[in-house]
Amino acid sequence: MYVLEGDKSAASRELLSRFTAPYYLLHGTDGKLGTGIRLLDCGDMMITMDVPTDFEKSLLRGKPAAVHP
């Protein structure tokens, strides 16, 4: 799994900590959309996750916080 980590907050780190081996292997995080797409297109990655920049702020406001696979 590759993560497009836009938020870099405690909430996003806690979420990502739930994706553990052997079911998920985290192969990297970054803020560049193109990296995840390239890895998918090349077959080097099976799944990517996009954690938006306002993830923690939404949670703290009591609003839904969407994460996109």
Rank of each mutant, 00 (worst) to 15 (best):
E56N: 02
A10Q: 13
E5D: 15
G34P: 03
A10S: 15
H27G: 11
L59P: 02
D41C: 01
L39P: 05
L59N: 00
G6T: 07
L4V: 15
E5K: 08
H68P: 00
S12M: 13
L39D: 04
T53M: 06
G36M: 08
D54N: 12
T20R: 14
M1A: 10
G6I: 14
L59S: 00
T20I: 15
L33M: 05
P52E: 07
H27Y: 11
G62P: 04
R13D: 11
E56T: 00
A66S: 05
C42E: 14
S58F: 06
P52Q: 01
A10H: 13
K8S: 14
K8Q: 15
P64H: 00
Y2A: 11
E14K: 14
G62D: 10
L60A: 01
I47N: 04
P22L: 07
S17M: 12
S17A: 15
A65L: 02
G28R: 07
V67Q: 00
D41W: 04
L16D: 08
G34E: 14
I47S: 04
V51T: 01
K57D: 11
S58I: 00
E5A: 15
L40S: 07
E14L: 15
D50V: 13
H68K: 01
T48F: 04
D30T: 06
G6C: 13
P22G: 02
E5N: 12
G28I: 07
T20N: 13
P64Y: 00
R18H: 08
M49D: 09
L60Q: 08
D50T: 10
